[in-house]
Design a protein around this nucleic acid. Structure first.
Lengths: 209, 209
DNA sequence: GTTGACACCCTAACACCGTTAGGTAAAACT
DNA sequence: AGTTTTACCTAACGGTGTTAGGGTGTCAAC
């Protein structure tokens, strides 16, 4: 065995960081591994399968060491934050993950940790299942948008003043409420914004126990 | 004017329904309009610009007739549901929307409606702004996943029994909580699931007013 | 010690992609 | 009538995922 599947995935993730999701091509990846592009098809049936492998590798660290002793809210928050962190750890990571639909041991482990916490909190089957998915959807949606605005992902970083200037091309009279909260729309503390929504979701779920 | 920008977008959306997001190519779109592919560049500077136009057209109907007289929770729920409906109205609609980052009148109108409702409920600037985005992220995350499993989007519809069978390849002992709530994971009433998460989020926001 | 299987990689090529350069006919404006 | 603008054209470039079919080294079995 000269090259293993896992090495290909690692090289692909490294390429992802360098070139972004659009720059991950079979030829460039092959070049990184000092082989020819068609040889990659020995390891992966298709590029989609490769992206699935990348997505799976991306979330491998999540919920690895989940301490179920903690209070259930803290467990859920920790897992959600770890997932966000994992997606953010690579350029376009959220896009890669959202673009695939995989059911692997890693995905199950994350779900298990979250559903376990919810059930421990006294949630019924339905509340645990749907609540878990609601949280995951929020995390993915948030992180995708967060990363789309990340300067690292964008060829030319969108600076804040330009975005505000673009907003000014619209009539303030037509969108009074948007203008009223403009400062908070452009707030850059994304950790705080993430936790705000997550806590709201969590509080809502807690109320329906 | 033989062909207007709007006609191109409409044809592109029609092509999207027929061929999916991967099937939307400049050549196929040109064929649909009885012109040659490079001519499309007269109307759009790039394919990305075209996709932006498609995303914008997709959400045009949302929050068109929002009755701000209603109770604020109902306004938020209505706008969120309309957004989900708009994304679901076209094959891969959520993927198209999530793949772009646009700030247009249509986007502002949706935000305005939602933030207006939140502020009317007594939310501070920050709660209104961040709460609005939390809801939008949830809607997009949910709808993306919903549509990824939609038989219409998938070449070969993933049937339920196969997905359950795939789950059985994993050890129930390792994932007891997942197995305990399996019936609810596979519940097919997606309207109910959507509203479940939305209501939780809404309840959480209400508590922090 | 030869044979065969298998793992891993190769070259060549196909059909398709987004995009650019440069030209052309018709319509609109002055 | 002359000029500009609009809306299209052909030809072509460099890139994409993927397939077909062939090679070469390693390692076990006879």
């Amino acid at each position: 065995m000269r090259i293993q599947k896992d090495q290909v995935v690692q090289a692909a993730l490294s390429l992802l960081d360098e070139a972004g999701i659009e720059g991950v091509t079979m030829r460039k990846l092959a070049q990184k591994l000092n082989i020819q592009a068609p040889s990659l098809y020995w390891h992966f049936a298709s590029k989609t399968a490769l992206l699935d492998g990348m997505a799976d590798a991306l979330i491998t660290p999540v919920a690895r060491a989940v301490k179920s002793r903690a209070r259930w809210e803290n467990v859920v928050t920790a897992v959600a934050s770890e997932l966000r962190g994992a997606l953010l750890s690579r350029r376009d990571g959220a896009r890669v993950f959202a673009g695939t639909y995989i059911v692997t041991e890693n995905v199950l482990r994350v779900s298990e940790a979250m559903m376990g916490a919810l059930r421990k909190a006294g949630a019924g089957e339905r509340t645990a299942a749907w609540g878990c998915f609601s949280i995951l959807h929020y995390v993915i949606g948030f992180t995708m948008e967060e990363q789309a605005l990340d300067p690292r992902s964008n060829p030319e970083p969108v600076d804040l003043s330009k975005r505000r200037a673009h907003f000014s091309t619209f009539s303030p009279a037509a969108y009074p409420n948007v203008y009223a909260v403009l400062d908070d729309i452009f707030e850059e503390d994304l950790d705080a914004r993430f936790l705000f929504g997550l806590n709201a979701l969590l509080a809502g779920l807690k109320a329906s126990l």
